[in-house]
Design a protein around this nucleic acid. Structure first.
Length: 464
RNA sequence: GGCCCUAUCGUCUAGUGGUUAGGACGUCGGCCUCUCACGCCGAAAACAGGGGUUCGACUCCCCUUGGGGCUACCA
């Protein structure tokens, strides 16, 4: 069975790059009827924090990336100990008592000679043990080149000369990334490792460990990284962002997932995927090889597509966090109708919530520019006439409302825009809003009449 | 410095020896129209450069250049 994992270290919030890796692993597992494991790699006691672990879990949950199992490396010391003993017994690892000072000096000397800095094996064949001296554990690097196959990059080859007897356990007794990573992947039965291609060199080191453990390595897919607009590695200075910031910004989780999976992966010309489609179509073969630039504009477009495609009821669930308190007293049915008129007019939930505010609370003031342009003396009489007609109209019936407007236009020989805009400003305070009839029908007769009377009083508009 | 990865419109990408190099975002026009959007139609926009291989290269190979990564008692 296919088993994948996402293995973040809780040294920061879940960011876009991490989420994408999780998404790839999740959909690959689901596409193959497999399992997706979450592993918190918290072996770096200095930098790991519980709050980051919580944020990572929250981010994944928000995106509905559910894990079949979760484990924490900090609770698995005994297992690592077991694997370490195996290495000692086989004579494949050794204690190194070299001081940091000696190591630094060594590195400096090697650099000066134009050599690549490598540990010189000083303690490799040490006979005696010092119980009072701190030590790290190093592996004995075999003199064999390292080959592996990668789903996206093809055949990979590294010379053993590129590596040295690297450390697997620190002097404080904790274990290092490459070691725990391999042990856990073996223990969890991970079949496919999908991760950023910044790990390509680590993979070579990890393959060495698999050999020492006499285990078969999993299959690998090293996905290209995400870059910022200046084509450097995506980081905080590119304006973003932990995944949860996108939530606050009004991005729908499905939209974010959809956008991210298309960054480095494609399925012909298809842009929008449902979750079911992703489970059906996602594969490793269509992964791209080169790094991709993160494009906020396209994310916004995808989000817009999702907003348009959701039913108002679905959207309302996500929208509740963004709606003003004044909307709370309205029924879901009322709000749903309001949402429907705004769906094609918002790129984010923030915009959507803002744009439909007027359905819940009457405008405090009128947008200056629009009011100046449309609330002119010349429309005062037509507006009064329209108001009278609307008082007699049936607000449940669009045709009836239409008739009121048409009669007004006819009588005064004016165009629709001349009366529609003043009404729109009266209803919403703005010159850009949904269609007149739909707004009138949703607001209802009493509320509409009240707002129109108020705007007629404001004609001609005088800026304050 | 060493090693590794990588290179199609501004961006995301399709393309696997013979295509008018396709789609999407964005941009710019137009249509629709009560405003703003949506929608629809259209336009500009790319194979980094140089060598090979081949009857024929965006597609295969090499070099250059550009970009990225790794080179920790971080992950």
């Amino acid at each position: 069975m296919v088993r994948t994992r996402f293995a973040p270290s809780p040294t920061g919030h879940l960011h876009i790059g991490g989420l994408r890796t999780a998404i790839f692993n999740y959909f690959f597992a689901k596409a193959n009827n497999g399992e997706f494991i979450l592993r918190i790699e918290d072996t770096d006691k200095e930098r790991s924090k519980d709050e980051y672990t919580r944020a990572i879990l929250e981010g994944l949950k928000w995106c509905s990336i559910d894990w079949d199992d979760i484990c924490y490396q900090s609770k698995r010391e005994a297992i690592y100990e077991k694997y370490l003993n195996f290495l000692f017994e086989k004579g494949l690892a050794y204690k190194c008592y070299c001081s940091k000072e000696r190591l630094e000096k060594l590195k400096k000397e090697q650099l000066e000679k134009g050599e690549n800095p490598h540990y010189d094996g000083h303690c490799r064949n040490l006979k005696e043990e010092y119980s009072d001296k701190p030590y790290v554990v190093r592996i004995k690097l075999p003199k064999e080149d390292i080959d592996f196959k990668d789903y996206v990059h093809g055949d990979m080859h590294f010379s053993y000369k590129e590596f040295d007897d690297f450390i697997i356990r620190r002097s404080d007794g904790s274990f290092m990334y490459n070691f725990t990573n391999v042990v856990d992947d073996i223990e969890c039965g991970i079949t496919h490792v999908i991760r950023g291609d910044d790990h390509l060199t680590n993979t070579a080191k990890q393959i060495v460990l698999y050999r020492l453990f006499e285990k078969e390595p999993p299959e690998y897919a090293h996905v290209p990284m995400i870059l910022g607009e200046d084509k450097t590695r995506l980081s905080k200075r590119h304006g973003a962002k932990s995944v949860l910031e996108y939530k606050e910004f009004g991005i729908l989780p499905d939209a974010l997932v959809n956008y991210l999976i298309r960054l480095g992966w494609s399925y012909g010309d298809k842009e929008i995927f449902t979750k079911d489609e992703l489970i059906k179509y996602f594969n490793l073969e269509n992964l791209n090889k080169s790094a991709a630039v993160f494009n906020p504009d396209k994310l916004l477009w995808v989000n817009e597509e999702y907003i348009k495609s959701y039913s108002p009821k679905e959207l309302l669930k996500y929208l509740k966090d963004f709606l003003d308190d004044s909307c709370k007293s309205f029924s879901d049915d009322y709000l749903s109708k309001a949402i429907e008129t705004m769906q094609a007019r918002a790129k984010t939930l923030v915009e959507l919530a803002d744009g439909m505010m007027f359905y819940c609370v009457e405008p405090k003031d009128y947008e200056e520019k629009g009011a100046k342009k449309y609330l002119k003396e010349s429309v005062k009489e037509p507006m009064k006439f329209l108001l009278d007609k609307l008082k007699e109209a049936d607000f449940e019936n669009e045709e009836s409302l239409k008739k009121a407007f048409e009669e007004t236009m006819e009588k005064f020989e004016i165009k629709m825009v001349k009366i529609a805009q003043p009404v729109r400003i009266g209803l919403t305070g703005r010159s850009a809003a949904p269609g007149i009839y739909e707004m009138l029908m949703i607001l209802g007769k009493d509320e509409s009449i009240k707002r129109i009377e108020k705007v007629i009083d404001a004609i001609p508009f005088k800026s304050s």
